[in-house]
Structures are given as C-alpha cells and as structure tokens.
Design a protein around this nucleic acid. Structure first.
Lengths: 228, 228
DNA sequence: CGGTTTTCCGTACAGTGCACGGAAAGAAGG
DNA sequence: CCTTCTTTCCGTGCACTGTACGGAAAACCG
C-alpha cells in the first residue's frame, strides 16, 4: 500500500529494459504524433519494443501514464533567470505555457479532465504565487488572480488548438469543411467583418486578452507594488 | 432475448420510435449520470430501449451525438429580457454558463476537444459580441475581449469541476486521497495559508476573476460607452 | 395486391484497458 | 554446482468499445 517508491531497498534487482522515464518519454512522443486519443497501451508498448503488459510493471494504469506525460511537458518551460518586473515575468511564463500547448496539442484536452498536480506544473503555479505576492497581492485576490491567469491560458489555447486542428482536417475532408463553413456563415453575420471568428491573429489576440487581465490585476495592486 | 416482435405489441409499430431529439435528450441524461467517458452507444441505445445500431439511422457517429449533446445544454441559458448595462449582462450570462457546466460537468471536457459550433452556443457568443459592440468596442479588441471572457469561463469551470470531482472520489478512495494530499502539502508550503489551492470559495473567486477581466475591458472602452 | 422505401437491429470485426498467471533472468545462500 | 527467491517480462483471455454490413419487418405508394 503506502510503501513508497522511493523506499531505499537493496533488494535483488536486475537491469531493467524499461523504466518509468522511458515510458513517459515514449508516451509524450506518441501523443504528439497521434493526438490525445491516439495513445493506447499496445501502441505505447510497441514503440518501446516491449510487450503490452510489461508497462504495468512501472505504471499503474493508462491514466497514470497520461498524468505523467502531462506533467512532463511543463518541464520545458524555462526557470526565470533573475527577478524582473512581475508583468514581464508573467507574460513570459504564460507565453511559454502557450507554446508548450502548441508543441503538444493534446495538453488542453488532458487538463480539462485531470488536475495539474505533478511537480513541474506545481512549480509553475508556485512561481505565479510568488511573483504576485511580491507585487503586493494577498489573500483571496491573490488566489483569484493566479486562477484567472491559468484558466485564461488553458481556455484560450484549447479553443485555439481546436480551431487549427479543424483547419488541418477540413483541408483533407471537403464535407466537414462545407459543414463548418456553413455554420460560420449562418451564424456570424453582423460581426463577421470586424470580429471574424477565426481571423488568424491568434498571437495578437492572446496578448491582448492577457494584457486585459494584467491591467485588471495591476489596478488591484497597492501603489508601491509596481516592480519586484 | 429478441422476443419476436411481430405478434402483439402494436405500440411498437408506430412510425417513429426514435428521433434525433430523443437521442440527444437521452445522451445528456446519460452523460449527466455517468460522466464524459460513460457514454457508449450501447448504453445509450439501452436507455432508449432500442438496438444499438438503430441509433445510426438518426445520428452519424458517436462524435455527432457528443456535438449535439454539447450544444443542447446551452439552451438552458435565459435569453436576456431587456438590454441593461453591459457589465451586468455579461456577469449574468457568464454566471449562467458556469451554472450549466456545473449541472453538466462533462461539458468542459468536451469543449476542450470540439468547437462550439452549434446554434445555441453560437447564439450565446453572438450576444457577447452584441453587448460589447454596443458598449463601444470594435475590431481586434472586441474579438480579444469576447475570447478572453469565454476562455476564462471554460478554463475556470474546467479546473473547478476537476477539483470537486477529485473530492468526491477521494472520499471513497483513501489511497488517492492520500496521494493528492501529499502532493498538495508538499508543493504548497509558503502560500498555503493565504492562498490555499482548494479553499472552497469557488463562487467568490470566479466573480473576482471575472471582475478583474471586466475592469480590463472597461478601461478600453471609449468614455461614452458606459451603458447600452 | 406488388414494389419501394423507411425503420429497426443481430452479427461480426478490429480495437481497447487490464487481470491473471507463468516464464525466465539473474542474485543469494547452501 | 544446485536451490530458492526476487524481479522483470509478457501471452492469453475477458469484457467492452465504435460501427460496417446486410437482412427483416413495416409503412407508404401505385
């Protein structure tokens, strides 16, 4: 039961072909290649040239693999070099989060289902708390600010990924394309010019939305807390 | 098992036993009861007392069912009675969106994977464009504002649902509870007091984050545009 | 009545996650 | 050397999935 994995035990062990790390690495690669629904334990094992059930020696379930893979990708974000202005710091971190979710488009689908409890994700959120605490936020406002920022990024990239997944597949599938276009034409009449649903400037819109939230945060800061 | 239908039982001979609407209704009920992964075509057919393949007369695929069910729940949101202040209107609409996702916790998981193209969802987004246009926003700022608001709600409720799904299951499963708690204790040391990860005041935090975004939007409005 | 079309659905197939139990490769003790 | 024990590996099997196919019954049309 609770006998920890880290328990130091010079028991008899032989060199293992597989490992937790190798499985996670392969899982990320497979998810990148096949998408969130493309990961099966059989395919994962095949990629590692192992029998399917061998994986279960290192991993409890498929859910476990997904949890691990999800946390793994957040390792790709840089640690902050030196403390700078809170606003620049947050923009940098959140832009990097977004980039991670672009490299690994399956991430939003997984975060919508499971909590971000892994060490890497937690480290990230700790940085946010730290930055905004230093900027002068406390209490429920601090919590709300951090929650708003990460919710925004998750939600934004999720819909963004859907959109160009849709573009990708509808290039190949004329039927779907027609259907989607029909919906869009039908439903976005009056605001179509100035507010096209998918006008492509995702980067600019992301930063505008982010700026909007950061302005809201800034207005709640004590006068002194403009830099860290 | 298939007690030959052809004798007696003339109730079954009536023209349409199934319909798209009946299927969608049953799908929503099944998703509510079993969660996003609990919907299978067999279970859905059973709930309708029909053969599995009968569904495919009215529906193209399981994906189709999910698209339909997803759009269906957005019908639950009230149409606005009369035009009021844009801020109150948005708060009301977004609070209702959140309530929908609470009643149907599977919604965020689905929106993370598929676009909100259905008529009900589109009508909702059209209202947002309208309200903010009337308030004075135009161009990319309008698009960014609408995107920010819906991304925030989706993202917020997604993580919120995960959290009390986790609470629900860990009450029954002591192992998971221990694991989760361990992670939380281990990773939230310094900010644990003032910014507990799950301190339960979800309503307040949602509204604070929303207010924060609305402040950001308000700061981008032309001076005149305070009400519609 | 016959023919056509519409609704229903049983069967079958390829795929899934994973429980179970066994094989085999070493290490330790004799 | 042999035996025993631990640890890795994995083949088989089971319950379940989405859905292609084709057939049967019933309703409609002439």
């Amino acid at each position: 039961m609770p006998e920890s994995i880290w328990f130091r035990d010079d028991a008899r062990r032989r060199r293992p072909r597989l490992s937790r790390e190798r499985i996670v690495e392969a899982a990320v690669a497979l998810l990148d290649a096949e998408g969130a629904n493309g990961l099966s334990m059989r395919a994962l094992a095949a990629r590692l040239q192992a029998g399917t059930m061998s994986l279960y020696e290192y991993v409890q379930s498929k859910e476990d693999v997904l949890d691990l893979a999800l946390d793994e990708v957040f390792r790709e974000i840089d640690e902050p070099r030196e403390p700078g202005p809170w606003r620049d710091f947050l923009i940098s971190q959140l832009t990097q989060s977004r980039a991670v979710m672009h490299r690994h488009p399956w991430v939003p689908a997984l975060t919508a289902t499971r909590p971000l409890l892994g060490p890497n994700a937690q480290a990230r959120s700790r940085l946010f708390y730290g930055a905004l605490t230093d900027a002068g936020l406390t209490g429920p406002e601090l919590t709300a600010a951090v929650g708003t920022l990460s919710s925004y990024v998750n939600g934004y990239v999720a819909s963004e990924n859907i959109w160009w997944e849709r573009m990708r597949t509808s290039e190949a599938d004329a039927e779907i394309r027609a259907k989607v276009d029909g919906h869009l034409r039908e439903n976005s009449t009056e605001y179509a010019d100035q507010a096209q649903v998918g006008n492509g400037d995702f980067d600019g819109q992301f930063l505008m939305g982010l700026d909007l939230i950061l302005d809201g945060i800034a207005s709640r800061l004590p006068e002194t807390g403009l830099r860290t």
